[in-house]
């Protein structure tokens, strides 16, 4: 005669099954999260060690790695494209005060033109402007206004000054003002 399990036994079985699933699942998740990275043996002996451990991923490239390059493989890519005419934009990338050398260094970025003139103007109410001029410079991967530095001695007065960049090129003018005032302390 087939033995029919009691309700209590059945509940116990179901509970045990649930605990088992939970335990296996938890272990699996834990092992996923704590998977050790592939180890690489460090060379030893009298030869220099050149392999830091656990750092280099030697797995093959994925399709995602090549998406961008593949998308660029068009007939147009073979010849160097001439960029379309862009709006002239002048940007002050930084205006750093170096208190030790008593200089203000101004970094710039120019887009939309490869030639033209730049002018940095430092202003303070009631004081004459301090102006430094340069030309657009090619810096291998971008265009800027070259090294622009203003000596503290160029400033007639200590205090806070605003910095403005003006770029003119082919009849276009672009300007940009540094978002902060720079503090000059002539001592």
């Amino acid at each position: 005669m087939k033995k029919i399990p009691s309700t209590r036994q059945r509940n116990l079985l179901i509970t045990l099954l649930a605990i088992l699933v939970l335990a296996v699942g938890s272990f699996y998740i834990y092992s996923l999260m704590h998977q050790p990275p592939a180890k690489q043996t460090v060379k030893t002996g009298s030869t220099p060690v050149s392999h830091p451990q656990n750092t280099i991923d030697y797995s093959p490239a994925t399709k995602a790695d090549n998406n961008a390059a593949d998308q660029r493989k068009t007939p147009e890519a073979v010849v160097t494209p001439t960029p379309t005419k862009q709006e002239l934009v002048a940007t002050i990338t930084r205006a750093s005060v170096d208190s030790s050398s008593h200089e203000v260094y101004v970094g710039t970025l120019v887009t939309g033109s490869t030639t033209g003139d730049c002018a940095i103007t430092a202003s303070q109410v009631g004081q004459p402007d301090v102006i430094k001029k340069s030309s657009i410079r090619y810096t291998s991967n971008a265009y800027d206004c070259g090294t622009l530095q203003l000596s503290f001695d160029d400033f007639p007065n200590s205090g806070e000054w605003s910095i403005k960049l003006t770029v003119t090129s082919g009849g276009s003018v672009a300007s940009n003002t540094w978002g902060k005032l720079v503090t000059i302390n002539r001592g």
Partner: peptide
């Protein structure tokens, strides 16, 4: 240092060559 448009400290860095995209300090 200081010979190029970026160095340590506060810098304004654009998101894109298109100036309308803006940037942040």
């Amino acid at each position: 240092p200081n010979a190029f448009n970026y160095w340590t400290g506060d810098n304004f860095i654009r998101y894109n060559p298109d100036s309308s995209c803006g940037g942040t300090n």
